[in-house]
Amino acid sequence: MADAATKPAAIVIGASAGALGALSVILPELPAAYRVPVLVVVHVPPDRNNMMVDLLQAKSQIRICEAEDKDSIRPGVAYLAPPDYHLQVEPTHEISLSNDEAVMFSRPSIDVLFETAADAYGPGLIGVVLTGGNSDGSKGLRAIIDAGGQGLVQRPDLAFATAMPQAAAAACPEAQVLSLEDIAAYLKKAGT
């Protein structure tokens, strides 16, 4: 069990194509008494109802919800970005949503979440880049590591779509490249 001093302040996760499968390996592993907040950006089409929340909640012990503007970020809750809004972290550790332009064709954008979270949490942050067919998240993961945080990347050879974890691993040689199961175990240990 990690002690309070090394417990991360927050975890941010980005996923695109194949996200549901990958998150279904990780989030159900986190125990009900998890002590760290989790913020998640998944690329979803703008007009789709966010089924992802219900699907993941059905399998998980921690609470899964759609992020709401100005919510205080709480440990043991996973916040998913709503479709068509960027999910950001304020320095006060509140959520802010924005309608700002898409970044690299994505809204929500993984980079936007990661960069604002890196700013708000500094070294206490773990960033995780999972499966996806684009390169969103690499800039953000770079920012997290530059701010003293840690990076985890899904092993591209095991990912549903390889481009995103590949780009992140290339941009961040310091990041650990792991299987989904190992990422799940790592996160579980870090916040329990």
């Binding site: 100005k70 960027h86 950001q88 972290v89 304020e90 320095p91 802010s96 924005s98 700002d100 936007v112 960069e115 604002t116 700013d119 708000a120």
Partner: peptide, 9 residues
Amino acid sequence: YAIASIKRR
């Protein structure tokens, strides 16, 4: 204003 968006802009 919420600072995260302002800062990015």
